[in-house]
Amino acid sequence: MSLLYKANLYSPYLLTLALCTLVLSGCSTLPNKETQVLIKQTSQQRINKLQQLQQWKIKGKIAFIDKKSRSSATLSWQVDENENTQQLNLTTYLGINVLQLDSNANSHKIQVDGKTYQGRDLEALIHSITGLTLPTQALTFWLKGIAYQEDDSIHYQKATQLPLTLSSYYNNELWQVSYANYQQIDGYSLATKFSIKKDDLLIKIVVNDWSITNK
């Protein structure tokens, strides 16, 4: 894909996304779950349980921050690892849809500004259309606090045995994930605040709602 094609696609989308200026630090956390006692289990017990979590949905907010720009949006992301499908929606604070993704296996369809784009490499497709770097494949694991690759390194909180940070050389680049504000969600201990960093890029995610569907 030429740089000219990429620039032509990116400009209108960035203008739309820039309308969303939500501040993540002010987001509310999951209702009625903040005071729940977290499950006591070893890190391996937690990993074994979360590897069985195949169907889930999160709603919240996401921000992309680098030296040149800062943009944010409302996030809705539904993943079914059993069927290998996912739906991702980014909207402005006014409810205007600026990106809609539907994936089935290695077939990905993205709608942006009324146009539809398709491809087989999801992360490359998102970047070519929006200019955003989003490690979607690994994030479906990292958001649960488990490794995507065997050599991913996880540092655990001593008292709770919950992930504190994760480091990964994903696509030959160093990614670092920080976790905060754990909640007990339908028997799973899951973080609701994430900082995902690579070089000068910082992605922040705040989850207001975790939905577990594979019970």
Rank of each mutant, 00 (worst) to 15 (best):
L90H: 08
L19N: 15
D102F: 07
L132Y: 01
G187W: 02
L15V: 06
I154F: 11
I47V: 13
E34V: 14
L53Q: 13
L202E: 03
T130M: 07
Y156P: 00
T133G: 06
I39K: 14
D66L: 10
K57W: 12
A191N: 15
I126K: 06
L125C: 14
V112H: 08
Q176M: 09
A105E: 09
C27R: 08
Y10S: 05
L38I: 04
L162Y: 11
L125R: 04
L190W: 09
Y156C: 04
K67N: 15
D66A: 10
L122M: 10
G119T: 04
S2G: 15
Q45L: 01
S28P: 03
I47L: 15
P163K: 01
A191L: 09
N84W: 05
S76F: 04
K158Y: 12
Y148L: 09
K109G: 01
A159C: 01
K144T: 06
Q41P: 07
Y117K: 13
T92N: 08
K144H: 05
D113L: 02
D66R: 11
K33M: 04
A159S: 14
G95Q: 10
S69R: 12
T42W: 12
N48E: 04
L162V: 00
G95F: 03
T85E: 15
T85M: 10
T213A: 15
Q149W: 06
D66E: 10
Q45T: 10
Q45K: 06
K57H: 05
S211K: 14
S107V: 02
Y117W: 07
Q183G: 09
N172E: 13
K61R: 11
T130N: 11
S25M: 00
N97E: 02
L125W: 00
S103E: 08
L166T: 01
K193D: 12
L94G: 04
Y182G: 05
Q176V: 04
K61H: 10
K59M: 12
L143Y: 02
N214H: 07
V23Q: 07
F141I: 03
W77D: 12
Y182M: 06
V112M: 12
T140R: 14
K68V: 01
L24E: 07
T213Q: 15
Q78N: 14
R120T: 12
Q52C: 05
L50E: 10
N171P: 03
E150G: 06
P12T: 00
L4W: 06
